[in-house]
Write a protein that binds this DNA or RNA. Sequence first.
DNA 1: TCGAAGTATGAAAGCATTTTCAGTCTAACA
DNA 2: TGTTAGACTGAAAATGCTTTCATACTTCGA
Lengths: 335, 335
Amino acid sequence: MPSRKKPTIYDVAKSSGVSISTISRVLNSPDKVNPETHRRVMSSIDKLGFVPKAEARARAMRHANRIGVITPLFTAPSFVQRLRGVASALSKANYELVIYPVDSVEQLQGYISSIPIMQNVDGLIIMSLAIEDQDARRLHDNGMQTVLIEYSHPQLNSIEIDDAIGGQLAARHIIGKGHRQVAFLGEIESPEKYAIHPVKSRLQGFKNTLDEAGISLLKKYIKSAPYMQENSQRAALELLSMDQPPTAIFAAADIQAISIMKVARQLKLRIPDDLAVVGFDDIDIAEYMDLTTIRQYLDQSGRLAAEILLSHLADSDRALQHIKIPLTLIERQTA
Amino acid sequence: MPSRKKPTIYDVAKSSGVSISTISRVLNSPDKVNPETHRRVMSSIDKLGFVPKAEARARAMRHANRIGVITPLFTAPSFVQRLRGVASALSKANYELVIYPVDSVEQLQGYISSIPIMQNVDGLIIMSLAIEDQDARRLHDNGMQTVLIEYSHPQLNSIEIDDAIGGQLAARHIIGKGHRQVAFLGEIESPEKYAIHPVKSRLQGFKNTLDEAGISLLKKYIKSAPYMQENSQRAALELLSMDQPPTAIFAAADIQAISIMKVARQLKLRIPDDLAVVGFDDIDIAEYMDLTTIRQYLDQSGRLAAEILLSHLADSDRALQHIKIPLTLIERQTA
DNA sequence: TCGAAGTATGAAAGCATTTTCAGTCTAACA
DNA sequence: TGTTAGACTGAAAATGCTTTCATACTTCGA
């Protein structure tokens, strides 16, 4: 009895003895339908070869149930961990997650200019990327709900980290442990034009707090090196093989702290006795390494971004939110 | 004058003083409308920036250069690293990446049954998840190009890891180093019904190779523990505080190997002298830790999956591919 | 044992268009 | 001058879905 016509959800409903609402639910929010019903409906769908008409769907759908995340291409573990927060919040709310990985300015510009027009996504989360005023305005004017993470703009929601405070926390801790010979390692100058510069602020906060305590952060003790292991290790080696090596190093990222630890091990330095190390981020691995670090609640910041976005989608004239997430020093074994 | 909401044909109708039917006609059969009316309507359309929603979306939905990845919710670093491979291959090819994170059977079942029917992605990559025969058939029958990673099915493309060989490599290496007291740590029994069981194969290959060399892997030296740090550490502690502790441990995942190293450090055991550790995966952090491990080329397997998918999308009657990725032992400092 | 708090479902109200049908108006023809 | 065939147009129905709302049916404490 295969009818010549394309089957509609009414046909499926009849064939499986439920209402059309249930058919729709099976396809769109399967978690809301009884497994047994689901099974029955799916088997009818398969039997009839039902495919929902995209046009009818588009018409009836108020929103796309899809949000986009623009992010640097999985470079650092910290991005991933934030993404995990985003993903878990979205999947709970039955939203699809579209990733737009960025590895050049042009790409970023391309996404930002085409996304609002395409209307493929209901909202946008932009992670750790600097966006230009004009792009921010475009997003705003097109009514694209957006949350910026680690960056801010007056016309868009934002979640920021107080990097300077992070530097301060690290400095206080290191001072408290009695260190006087203190160093800093981080990727101070990022080569990418679209990148943000949290490391500078971390250094600033660190340096100022040391200054206030009468400890000077000598220029030779400030090393800039890219995240990559080789670079970080080389920089660490330079620091640690000086005539008067530092007794404590604050690394602007946990992975760099781990590089320092590796070099220290090779030099037979005991941590924290010969060398104290403080990281920044508190990525998963930090706990495995017993690394003392500044926690920036990565998962939670991602989750929060998603939640803010969803709440603004639900109620579009909600006031803009500019949130600063607090930082905490997590004391473990390395400092 | 950017209006908040997208204009509909009602807005155009109002603005140009005609009925919606006429707007529709202007768009679909212009010959049936008075030239003067046509002109007026067109000018309203331009002014409002009206775009027929359904069509725009239907077009956007249809062949959007979009591929989906179904993956366990970022639990282990190894998933993330594979994902990175996928992302980089796709972004090069100008494809959008939609993530479907799974954390329950129901969710997996939901995605996997609706995606092939909804057809809102062009292709699908399913990472490290077991799928049922019926679902595989549905994917195939609905013409959804699919690549399975760490699992296989005769009707779908697949990329597999030879886990047993991995165990064998680890065993050979450990034997070569002269160890006789050998242990295994891994999450042998996964609690999730949808999970796959590569750990069993790793253990199997490990055990068999030891057997062949006349070394028996005693039952008490086989520990099953979840990936989570606390569990792995407890298991490691149990192993290492036995009367006759093992002198070498093969961990079925790098993060578990790292947990072992942490416990060993606490017990003041020197690695590799007192205890040799071999991991599995070769995640990024393994290099930082100088961990000897079995490399499974995570990035590359992800990239390969994406490439296979793209080539099948370009030419849909390409033959199915079932690929086994080779493993390599990477010797570093821990064994 | 009762009420409270969920689950699972169907009826019905959208959604943004297209299409049908019927009416008005004009122009042309007898 | 009365008819009438077009040419335009609008009201309303149809389209194939999604979503809201109400309701019946389960648990689940206490």
